[in-house]
Simulated assay, not measured.
Amino acid sequence: MKVRQDAWSEENDLLLAETVLRHVREGSTQLKAFEELGDTLNRTAAACGFRWNAVIRQQYEKALGLARKQRKQHFRNLEKKEKSSGLHIVSENNPSGENTVGIPDSPALTMREIIAFLQNINMSEADYEILQRELETIKREKAAIETKYEELEKRAITMQQDYEDLVRIMDRARKMFVFGDEAAQKHALQAEDNKDLEKIAE
Rank of each mutant, 00 (worst) to 15 (best):
148 K>N: 10
89 I>D: 00
167 V>A: 03
73 Q>I: 05
61 E>Q: 08
160 Q>T: 13
184 A>W: 04
114 I>C: 01
85 S>A: 12
112 R>E: 09
86 G>C: 00
127 D>R: 01
116 A>R: 04
95 P>C: 01
145 I>R: 14
166 L>A: 08
130 I>D: 11
152 L>A: 05
83 K>E: 13
88 H>I: 03
105 D>C: 04
142 K>T: 14
135 L>T: 13
135 L>K: 10
79 E>F: 14
103 I>A: 06
175 K>I: 11
97 G>Q: 00
69 K>L: 13
153 E>Y: 10
126 A>I: 13
115 I>N: 06
101 V>F: 06
147 T>A: 11
130 I>A: 06
127 D>V: 00
114 I>H: 01
117 F>M: 05
92 E>W: 02
81 K>F: 15
64 L>H: 09
104 P>T: 04
96 S>A: 15
165 D>C: 11
72 K>S: 15
136 E>N: 07
78 L>A: 04
157 I>D: 11
81 K>A: 14
87 L>F: 02
73 Q>T: 12
84 S>K: 14
77 N>F: 03
179 F>Y: 14
64 L>M: 07
56 I>E: 00
132 Q>H: 09
114 I>F: 00
64 L>Q: 04
88 H>K: 08
129 E>I: 11
158 T>H: 11
180 G>C: 07
177 F>Y: 13
153 E>L: 09
162 D>F: 01
61 E>G: 00
76 R>G: 10
73 Q>K: 14
56 I>W: 02
110 T>I: 03
93 N>F: 10
88 H>V: 01
149 Y>Q: 14
157 I>S: 08
149 Y>R: 15
155 R>H: 05
178 V>E: 15
99 N>D: 14
75 F>L: 07
71 R>H: 03
157 I>A: 11
180 G>E: 03
111 M>H: 10
132 Q>W: 07
78 L>P: 02
125 E>V: 12
167 V>D: 05
183 A>S: 13
76 R>P: 03
141 E>T: 08
117 F>N: 03
122 N>M: 07
80 K>H: 11
149 Y>S: 13
181 D>A: 01
184 A>K: 13
82 E>M: 15
140 R>Y: 03
121 I>H: 00
76 R>N: 15
99 N>Y: 11
136 E>V: 05
157 I>M: 10
80 K>S: 14
98 E>P: 03
79 E>S: 15
63 A>N: 04
68 R>G: 07
88 H>T: 03
114 I>L: 02
90 V>R: 01
149 Y>V: 09
105 D>L: 05
155 R>I: 15
61 E>I: 09
169 I>A: 06
139 K>Y: 12
141 E>S: 10
149 Y>C: 11
62 K>Q: 08
146 E>L: 09
132 Q>V: 09
126 A>N: 09
82 E>G: 12
147 T>D: 08
79 E>W: 14
103 I>G: 02
168 R>P: 05
92 E>K: 01
122 N>C: 08
67 A>C: 01
128 Y>D: 02
133 R>L: 09
132 Q>I: 04
50 F>A: 06
146 E>T: 06
126 A>D: 07
89 I>K: 00
117 F>H: 07
105 D>S: 04
53 N>R: 08
180 G>K: 10
113 E>W: 02
50 F>S: 08
54 A>K: 12
119 Q>K: 04
177 F>V: 14
156 A>C: 02
85 S>F: 04
122 N>A: 12
87 L>G: 01
173 A>Y: 15
